[in-house]
């Protein structure tokens, strides 16, 4: 559905997007993840034909964003970051204007507007359709922005930071809305909050300093981080070496490292993949009369991974201090 090849964007002498390539299948929900200033918005702006790329190409549904700009724009619903709206207009009036601008035939406009108002919870529980846009709260502005994207029922939705500035309840609503939309549309959304992207997206592209540093499904990315299972065990009742030897003797355990010595001995246990040795560790401790204070599986979160790779990337790019 969306194909991006070697996309590069310079702003003057600043390189905002550096040779990005990715592909999005129809019907998938893709999360664009990166710290602030990583080039997410720039990439989305190129995809939505707001800005041209310096080099490289991008196409949406087979139409090139540069040479077939209007066709691409017809196929995309774009909600920019911060959702710019005309402050003086009213919700329904704004949507009527946008519907006309999108070339929806006059006879179908009212139906389309009613539908998006309903889908974005703007007509019920509270009817917001005659509110002035400038009087709307952040959450409602966001919904109006989304309603605008959905008016012409485009195959592709591009949402730049759809949850920024929302309170937790609104974030959850927005997330459900996006999940819902993902069933019918191809969705690209950007965020700098991983938890959101992880829950909503089938595919994640992590971008940092204008480069793609990782991409894959949340599961694939998580596997890249955590590797085989790892246990943290805290025991006492014998010398540290003795404890380590006893734990290492359990079948399935690959390596044991004493992490911390003291009154309690803390061990970091590496087991073979897909084997959970927690039960065996507990049974061993009970049979030998050791006291067990902690036994937990350590799962590296995607968050760690995200911070780690974006940090590495920014370190590599850091200018040499004079």
């Amino acid at each position: 559905m969306i194909d991006v090849q070697h996309l590069t964007k310079w702003y003057g002498r600043t390189l905002a997007v550096d040779d990005i390539s990715f592909h999005v299948e129809a019907g998938s929900v893709v999360g664009f993840l990166g710290p602030n200033g990583a080039g997410k918005s720039t990439t989305l702006r190129i995809l939505t034909c707001f800005q041209p790329a310096s080099s490289g190409s991008a196409s949406v549904d087979g139409c090139d964003v540069f040479s077939q700009s209007v066709q691409v724009r017809r196929r995309i619903g774009y909600m920019p970051e911060n959702v710019p709206l005309y402050p003086e207009m009213r919700v329904r009036e704004y949507l009527r204007f946008r519907a006309a601008l999108r070339g929806i035939p006059r006879s179908q406009r009212a139906v389309a507007i009613d539908k998006v108002l309903e889908d974005c919870w703007l007509s019920s529980p509270q009817d917001m359709s005659y509110r002035r846009l400038e009087t709307l709260s952040r959450g409602y502005r966001q919904r109006v922005g989304l309603a605008d994207c959905l008016l012409h029922d485009p195959p592709v939705l591009v949402l730049d930071e759809p949850t920024i500035g929302l309170d937790p309840a609104q974030v959850r609503e927005m997330r459900n809305l996006v999940l819902n939309l993902g069933q019918k549309h191809t969705v690209i959304l950007s965020s700098h909050i991983l938890a959101e992207v992880e829950q909503v997206c089938k595919q994640i592209v992590i971008i940092s300093s204008g480069k793609i540093v990782a991409q894959g499904t949340p599961r694939e990315l998580r596997e890249r981080v955590s590797g085989p299972g790892r246990l943290i065990v805290e025991l006492r009742g014998a010398m540290a070496e003795q404890l380590a030897r006893d734990v290492a003797a359990i079948p399935g355990v690959q390596a044991v490292e004493p992490a911390e010595a003291g009154e309690w001995c803390r061990l970091s246990v590496q087991s073979t993949e897909d084997v959970d040795v927690r039960v065996q560790v507990a049974a061993m401790a009970a049979s030998k009369g050791y006291q067990l204070r902690e036994l937990r599986r350590e799962v590296a979160s995607l968050e760690d991974f995200f911070v780690q790779i974006t940090y590495e990337q920014s370190m590599r790019q850091a200018p040499v201090a004079l």
Binding site: R45, T48, C49, F50, V70, R73, R74, I76, Y78, P80, N82, P84, L85, Y86, P87, R98, L101, R102, G103, D148
Partner: peptide
Amino acid sequence: RTGTIETLMTAPVT
């Protein structure tokens, strides 16, 4: 100034 140019220019208008 308000950024509405972004929604305007990404609509199918020349």
